[in-house]
Design a protein around this nucleic acid. Structure first.
Length: 610
RNA sequence: GCCGAAGUGGCUCAGGGGUAGAGCAAUUCACUCGUAAUGAAUAGGUCGUGGGUUCAAUUCCCACCUUCGGCUCCA
């Protein structure tokens, strides 16, 4: 999608040009070149597929953020076993070095041409093109594809490529349409670049939170509850620390906390509109012959709390936070470790306010979210999603709300993108996306203006004029879901959490059995000081113990032997820097306390992003 | 849910119509050791679940479950 947008922003003449891949190109020019390069690579793929399997029908084959894909329609599709064969054919075509030529046709002839090619998907695309659009084709040898371009000039330019995976994809991305077979690939002008990219993919796999979560014993999953993760003791420590930090920030920002029930009656969900709009995602249960639903969102419960007593304008803004465990029935194919689950804890809040408080409140939320993300050194993307087609309520309200959100973003100088038509049905929203290890963006924070709830629940407050008014409700999350945020933290740090966040902060390692007593003394002292310390006095060599502690990614290893016992010191080994020398016990404790209280995070201030 | 792939001891993986093997981890013993793996021995698996074919299934077939890569959806 962003790539599509990028291409369309090119000046018209650039679309026609054939791209000479220059080694000196950088920045935007390089992006454009690579875009064309990948696009040409997808043609190379399609060319090979048509040679090998002429009965295949072509759908679309764009460049994407990292590489390209092509969607094909073929009886039986393709499997991963077909990929090496197709790659071989691609090599032949590249080597033959066909000239890639562009030509245009008047609309009628273009339609006729595509009909002759017997490409139904292409025909659909030509027919959908605007009347005045120039219709271009790109041709290499006997392969021709309807395409806006631009492309590289010769097939030989595509030197290094690899087909990565096969998957299903709906035509036009609509699940009502036919499922096509999509082949993903990546390519580069030089083999070293391809190798580097493939190596990056391998490294990303090493920091996959599902792998690290198992190895570091943070969480587990079970067939007994697909999509319902289990937190193990160490994962729970991490989670609690995160929650402590969250509570601290929210207390400072003037939030109060509430907790609403997990199960509420059908009539409440009917009132909120969820029973009509969200039923497919809700788990229901019958209690005393009455329908109830397990909450998929916290808002209706929050509305009831607001209504529990009358409010004055003096009470507003009321910032009501809730770490609410919600359940949503997600389709089985979408589950993904801790990132995409069926039960998750939203760091939710509902802010009730007067209309003239919207700007301050929204910008306050944005600052809070920015503060949290920055504390961990996350890069994130902001999107403003506007009115969708199936929106409810007054267009006037929508326009006003959208412009308020936009104004706040502008005033704060935020770098954001507009996502037209992607808002919730009840109001526009600002979304915050954080990237995972392999560059996939995950929505975490969200700020949603909600017009529906205050009305449906008939919320009101007494204004300074003594009259009843309807409050504005903003629904927001900062971390999004604890589960997802923890998954992102795991990948972000490759499991090497900063000291304050580490489930095990320090491990005391004895050199030999005769040092056990001193090791235990040190260990007890650390525990007494409140650190998460462990003791390893096993009958093993020091190298072995260090290796284990290192693999467990423990920030500090304290090695103690005869020398340390004698001098009452510690030999400090850092997970990241190795042996950093000898330190007195007290000196170490002071330093460690400082790391804890400042929540110092080396990764967040490091300019290098690994 | 859909398309494709995969499920073998705690983990990583090999094998294959005649009821299974390695490395690491675990346990025991010996070594008493100075910054990423001391050695030896032992134990551990109804090969995801349920059917079917067969004299015989973990291996072949079918269904289901789960996981992985995508699509769709979303925190």
């Amino acid at each position: 999608m962003p790539d599509e947008a990028k291409r369309q922003h090119l000046p018209a003449e650039d679309k026609k040009e054939q791209v000479v891949m220059t080694t000196t190109a950088d920045g935007e020019k390089e992006d454009q070149d690579m875009h064309a390069f990948w696009h040409s690579s997808s043609h190379l793929l399609a060319h090979a597929v048509k040679r090998l399997f002429p009965e295949t029908k072509l759908a679309i084959g764009p460049a994407i953020e990292n590489g390209f894909y092509y969607d094909f329609d073929r009886e039986g599709g393709f499997t991963t076993e077909d990929l090496p064969v197709i790659e071989e054919e691609m090599k032949k075509i590249a080597k033959a070095n066909y000239r890639i030529e562009r030509f245009t046709l008047p609309r009628d002839e273009a339609i006729e041409y595509v009909k002759q090619q017997d490409e139904p998907y292409k025909l659909e695309m030509v027919l959908a093109l605007p009347e005045d659009e120039e219709i271009s084709f790109y041709k290499q040898e006997d392969f021709t594809d309807l395409c806006a371009g631009p492309h590289v000039r010769y097939t030989k330019q595509i030197k290094a490529f690899k087909l990565l995976s096969v998957s299903g994809a709906y035509w036009h991305g609509d699940e009502k349409n036919k499922m096509l077979t999509r082949i993903y690939g990546v390519s580069y002008p030089k083999k070293e670049q391809l190798d580097r990219y493939l190596k990056q993919l391998e490294e990303a796999k090493l920091r996959d939170h599902r792998k690290l979560g198992r190895e570091l014993e943070l969480f587990m999953t079970s067939e007994a509850g697909p999509g319902f993760p289990f937190f193990l003791p160490k994962g729970m420590v991490l989670r609690e620390l995160l929650v402590d930090y969250w509570k601290e920030l929210h207390r400072e920002a003037g939030y109060v906390l509430v907790s609403t029930p997990m199960i509420l009656s059908r009539s409440l969900w009917e009132e909120s509109g969820h029973w009509d709009h969200y039923k497919d995602n809700m788990y229901t249960v019958v209690i005393d012959e009455q329908d109830y639903a397990v909450k998929p969102m916290n808002c209706p419960g929050g509305m009831l709390i607001y209504k529990n007593k009358p409010h004055s304008y003096r009470d507003l803004p009321l910032r009501m936070g809730e770490l609410g465990l919600v359940h949503r029935h997600e389709k089985s194919g979408t589950l993904h470790g801790l990132m995409r689950v069926r039960a998750f804890t939203q760091d939710d809040a509902h802010i009730f306010m007067t209309p003239d408080q919207i700007e301050d409140e929204v910008s306050g939320i944005i600052r809070l979210i920015d503060r949290i993300y920055s504390a961990f050194g996350f890069k994130y993307r902001v999107e403003l999603s506007t009115r969708p087609e199936n929106s409810m309520g007054d267009i006037e309200d929508w326009n006003r709300a959208e412009s308020v959100l936009q104004k706040v973003l502008e005033d704060m100088g935020a770098d954001y993108r507009i996502n037209p038509g992607d808002g919730a049905f009840y109001g526009p929203k600002i979304d915050f996306h954080i990237e995972d290890a392999i560059g996939r963006g995950w929505q975490c924070g969200t700020i949603q203006l909600d017009f529906q709830m205050p009305q449906r629940f008939d919320l009101e407050y007494t204004g300074s004029d003594g009259a009843k008014h309807r409050p504005i409700v903003v629904h927001r999350t900062a971390l999004g879901a604890l589960e997802r945020f923890i998954a992102i933290l795991i990948e972000h740090y490759s499991g090497k959490f900063p000291f304050w966040l580490s489930p095990e902060q320090v491990r005391v390692l004895s050199i030999s059995q005769q040092n056990s007593a001193y090791a235990e003394e040190v260990f007890k002292r650390l525990r007494l000081e409140g650190f998460r310390a462990e003791l390893d006095v096993r009958d093993e060599k020091i190298g072995y113990k260090i290796r284990e502690a290192q693999l467990a990614k423990i920030p500090y290893m304290l090695v103690v032997g005869d020398r340390e016992a004698e001098e009452k010191t510690l030999s400090v080994r850092s997970r990241d820097e190795g042996n950093i020398g000898s330190l007195g016990i007290d000196a170490f404790i002071v330093k460690a306390h400082e790391l804890n209280t400042t929540r110092y995070d080396a990764a967040a201030v490091d300019t290098e992003d690994e």
